[in-house]
Design a binder for these strands. Sequence first.
DNA 1: CTCGTTTTGTTCTCACGTTCACAAACTCCT
DNA 2: AGGAGTTTGTGAACGTGAGAACAAAACGAG
Lengths: 221, 221
Amino acid sequence: MTARTPTDAVRDIPEATVARLPVYLRALTALGDQGITTCSSEALATAAGVNSAKLRKDLSYLGSYGTRGVGYDVDYLRYQIAREIGVTQDWPVVIVGIGNLGHALANFSGFRSRGFRVVALLDADQALHEQQVAGIVVRPFDDLEQIVRENDVAIGVISVPAFAAQDVADRMVAAGISSILNFAPTVLSVPPGVDVRKVDLSIELQILAYHEQRKAHGEPV
Amino acid sequence: MTARTPTDAVRDIPEATVARLPVYLRALTALGDQGITTCSSEALATAAGVNSAKLRKDLSYLGSYGTRGVGYDVDYLRYQIAREIGVTQDWPVVIVGIGNLGHALANFSGFRSRGFRVVALLDADQALHEQQVAGIVVRPFDDLEQIVRENDVAIGVISVPAFAAQDVADRMVAAGISSILNFAPTVLSVPPGVDVRKVDLSIELQILAYHEQRKAHGEPV
DNA sequence: CTCGTTTTGTTCTCACGTTCACAAACTCCT
DNA sequence: AGGAGTTTGTGAACGTGAGAACAAAACGAG
């Protein structure tokens, strides 16, 4: 690695690369589980579904962790990527909105194994309180501030209906959460410094529909 | 509409624009529901959470549907975008994998209202067959081919565990499905001509974690 | 009818992301 | 030790996307 002073610690990795690092991480885990200890950029790129030049360029932003003529050490590279992303320790997460989707999210086994830990499930509906979902008791939404404070929660997941999402986001931000994963089909507005990512089923389907329509329209051979 | 010859029917709209059209569609629907009949690019951009120059440029790919000095007619523009995306009629969709997530998807009310119709729920687990989920009977996975044929299904949703996802995708493609929305945390490989979009909770959380780590690391002012 | 106001549609420039192509660096074989 | 064969890391070319800025077009007032 080239000499790096403490002050330039914050190299900036392109956003497109950041979005692919988790994919590489998963691919490396899969290779490791198969007992593979070393792999080339070509092999890893295939496992991750990208082109090898792009993979190498992405990895080069992290540092120089490969060996020319040999490839990458699977475990070592996996650790380096995990460290870069910040999932070497667990991040506490709260889920707000325990409807159908909230249930599915709470039961999602990938949380724990991938660096996240659900510390609380919240819902405004009193009928759900005291019930257990995925082994965790559902608590009132008003407990949010206390939970965030006590567990130092930085990441919140919103799985409430669209009309309630902005209110939940506002409360989350006020409580100190600065990263939000939004499953509600609505645009959230948050202050600068707060990150929001959205997952939207309708949008994904509509994008597919657009391309599908294209295929159908162009195909009349 | 401006005169358009049959041969130039396939204008190509940039992918980034295609991904935003559904957002505009939703924003227009919201404005319409509020009784608003006309809006400026500025107002619509705010509702959609984008910048107005980008919005105008996106809309310009579809055609010239606004009026200078006035703005856009909400209902008219909404119809034009819906037509461009291809959601003026309903698309039949099959969901494979009726676990926690599959349940949530089947119950998702946005399907019907946004141009999609769930024609079947499939699962390999016999214990689920004949049960009703969201008013639809769960059927054996082996019924896939028949259902696709009879309903002319082009879009499939995969919500099975990761290890089974590739098999399901292969069967879908063989049955004639050419657009897949994949919720399983794995890379799918499909032949050219088949579109895959993936929705991946772990990846989204890890991207948030990366930025969160950055904030925490840079903040000690 | 003409002028001022408003707002769209589009052009231009810059930044970002992807891919190619190759030098540098490592291993292995003779 | 030296040369052939691999594979990484990166510079350079290309394509796509974002945002500023402005001309063209519509409306309304007088």
